[in-house]
Design a binder for these strands. Structure first.
Length: 530
DNA sequence: TATAGGACTTAGGATTCTGCTT
DNA sequence: AAGCAGAATCCTAAGTCCTATA
């Protein structure tokens, strides 16, 4: 089939790579003369570069970021670096800077833009433009001179913009990026990669799920092994075995070490500290309960109380002995050491594969348990969402409660109440019609009974649908389904489910998702088993 | 054998679009 | 036609994990 992988040498990622290079935003256009910046109450004409940076801050005046001291300090520091020496002499206090006129100019401009028909709207600024990061630090504009281009040697090599040169053009088929540069704040690499809908990414995605399916075949052996290792003479091995148990049972992330201070204080499994867990020999009628409370990726809180097997509990007590709260729980363990071990247990196995495996197998099991073939499409979709939700909860994929949640829930509740009333009225109507038919026994009255019953049935169905909607909405309040759907659930499970129950694929995947999962839609039949 | 560098995946919030209701 | 909510899409930071290098 078209998804069959073509033979490539080890490490070779593509045979042919041609593209047009990154798009660069136009250079900064100065403000009109009548839009002014004020310092200490007096208008002050800024140099072009200084003015441009001022506009970034001005645009964000409504954002709460600009009320934060750290944001203000970072911004002012970076802004002053770009000023002329004359400007540096004058502009010494951010509090004396008045950006309000510039702010208003952009608000008005934005309003005007919104009113324009689609085609005339200005192209949006690309990611290579200069802007202020979340901490107020200045991200510099990326110039062609910063960018490395990667493509096929024999392809049409992208042209840099007029008067500019690329930093470098290379022909490296062992990597998949099209262009790269170094970002100025953290000195990290940035890449332009192919779309998720591309064949290259699709094949990679497919491979990922195939590795997870292979884990399904050996996971029982691996579980038996880590249970044995809980009793190992080597503390290091015990720590590895307990951590792996958490990764497997709770779908925790690996938890690489990261540099302190520079980044938020977040952890994963291997980087858990003593302060992140509490041990309860007994709790709420359960034995050996571990209470987790820590910040994970993106500072999302992980809070969970789990009853664990006794040897795990005993080991945790041992690991915590004579340690400070801020000491590492698994002090002998690194993700590298863990992954070396996993690689040895199964080719291609790493800590993150457990998340993929457990997510996908959970979806498959939940779909099996929750789908009722007698349900209508809406009912089956609720089951699908619930299965998806079980996975999102397992992986701790959260979202902040949408700002409009309470209001829209209320609107929905009002609709339900109105519908209930209609149903009651329709019930009365049916009763009345039946009585009339009993009295008269004529055909017209009989037809009327049928008509009223039909109406009642339709209203009842509408009410049921609204109730389903409300349930789904409430259950989904703080849970993000998208992340698991896009990154953890083997799409073939969903495709098979759709085929089996006659659900159109569009009901569960939107256009972008259908493009990303084209490979799965193509190859999975209704009897696909993860 | 540690560590930095590098490439790639995963993440939730912000922004924009769409289609419904009024 | 406007206003709105929710869906779709964009954005890019924050992770994972491997390799090169001292």
């Amino acid at each position: 089939s078209r998804w069959e992988e073509e033979k490539k040498e080890d490490g070779v990622k593509w045979m042919q790579l041609e593209h047009r290079g990154p798009y660069f935003v136009p250079l900064y256009e100065p403000l009109p003369e009548d839009v002014q910046f004020y310092y200490d109450g007096k208008p002050l004409k800024l140099s072009l570069a200084t003015e441009e940076i001022a506009t970034f801050y001005a645009k964000m005046l409504d954002h709460e970021y600009t009320t934060k001291e750290i944001f203000q300090n970072n911004f002012f520091h970076d802004w002053r670096k770009e000023m002329t020496s004359e400007e540096q002499e004058i502009i010494k206090d951010l509090d004396k800077c008045d950006f309000r006129e510039i702010h208003k100019y952009f608000v008005d401009k934005n309003e005007a833009r919104k009113a324009l028909p689609k085609e005339e709207k200005q192209v949006r600024a690309g990611s290579y433009d200069m802007f202020l990061g979340p901490m107020g630090m200045l991200k510099k504009r990326i110039m062609p001179e910063d960018v490395i281009i990667n493509c096929s040697r024999d392809s049409k090599i992208p042209e840099p913009p007029e008067g500019h040169k690329w930093k470098e053009v290379r022909f490296d088929n062992t990597v998949t990026w099209l262009a790269s540069w170094t970002e100025n704040i953290q000195n990290t690499f940035k890449y332009i990669m192919l779309n998720p809908s591309s064949k290259l990414k699709g094949e990679k995605d497919w491979q990922k799920y195939e590795v997870a399916r292979r884990l399904k075949g050996v996971v029982h052996t691996i579980r038996a092994q880590y249970r044995r290792d809980w009793k190992s003479k080597e503390i290091k091995e015990r720590q590895r075995a307990v951590a792996l148990y958490f990764i497997d049972k709770l779908a925790l992330r690996a938890g690489n070490e990261k540099e302190e201070g520079e980044t938020a204080d977040t952890v994963g499994c291997c980087s858990l500290r003593v302060e992140h867990i509490q041990l309860h020999p007994q709790l709420d009628g359960q034995e050996h309960v571990v209470e987790f409370d820590f910040l994970g990726k993106d500072s999302i809180r992980y809070y969970n109380k789990v009853s664990v097997e006794k040897p795990v509990f005993k080991n945790l007590q041992l690991f915590m002995k004579n340690k400070d709260p801020t000491d590492d729980l698994f002090d002998q363990l690194t993700t590298n050491f863990l992954n070396k071990h996993l690689q040895h247990l199964m080719d291609g196995l790493t800590a993150k594969v457990f998340r993929t495996y457990n997510a996908s197998i959970t979806l498959q099991e939940q779909l099996k348990a929750l789908t009722n073939p007698e349900d209508n499409v809406a009912g089956k979709l609720l089951s699908y969402n619930r299965a998806n939700r079980a996975v999102a909860i397992l992986c701790n994929h959260q979202r902040s409660v949408p700002k409009t949640f309470a209001r829209s829930m209320q609107v929905l509740q009002e609709k339900i109440d109105a519908k209930k009333k209609q149903v009651e009225e329709a019930q009365e109507e049916v009763k009345k019609a039946e009585e009339e038919f009993k009295d008269t026994e004529d055909a017209k009255a009989e037809a009327n009974v049928e008509k009223k019953k039909k109406l009642l049935k339709r209203l009842e169905e509408q009410l049921a649908k609204l109730n389903v909607q409300a349930t789904d909405k409430e259950e989904n309040k703080q849970i993000a389904l998208g992340t698991s759907k896009l990154n953890y659930l083997d799409p073939r499970i969903s495709v098979a489910w759709c085929k089996k129950f006659g659900i159109p694929i569009e009901k569960i995947y939107n256009k972008t998702q259908r493009e990303k999962f084209a490979w799965a839609i193509d190859m999975a039949g209704e009897d696909f088993e993860f």
